[in-house]
Amino acid sequence: MSGLIGKKIGMTSIFDEAGKNIPCTVIEAGPCVVTQVKNIDTDGYEAIQLAFGEKKENHTSKALLGHFAKASVAPKKIMMEFTRFEAGHQKKFGDVLTVDIFIEGEYIDVVGTSKGKGFQGVVKRYGFKGVGDATHGQHNRMRAPGSIGASSYPSRVFKGMRMAGRMGNERVKMINLQIMKIIPEKNILVVKGSVPGPNGSYLILERWS
């Protein structure tokens, strides 16, 4: 695989050659710096660590400052490890990766943290139907989950029963998003469809070949 760290900018729409109006997400992707190369001898596994995003020096711990100084780059906000990086893209310490590693038209996976929805009931959280009728004697069960199990046997609620609770704010991966456009001079990537999280949130872009 190969990949980058990016930032969600916002959504817009583009007309394709067939005249279809395609909803798109604009992502600021890279430039990312290789701040560490891990190998089997010293770390027990192979991976490269990429860093992205501006960060003030006085907001960075001394330990991290030393880590960035090693790669001779300014402090970065986000660091992420990428394993099984493509042999062709085998990167060395201090290398800079840009959107050039992607090609227009190919498909990538985008990982982000979804928007937090707070404590939600089963209708919103799991798509339960609730009680269909507002009348026929029904008065306050419109969005209730219904039965959560049988009585004397098993006399307990099964683990993993879908109930109300905290929704969102979790890692979500969108797979096979087509790259509509690449604007290298501004490090911009435009992908088809939506990606998780609010505007300004950080994303991991992965391309599996």
């Binding site: 900018i9 916002g10 817009t12 604009v26 600021e28 911009i188 300004g200």
Partner: peptide, 12 residues
């Protein structure tokens, strides 16, 4: 963010 989005939309 706004300027980057504007930049993309300006190309349409």
């Amino acid at each position: 963010k706004q300027e980057l989005l504007q930049y993309v939309e300006d190309q349409i």
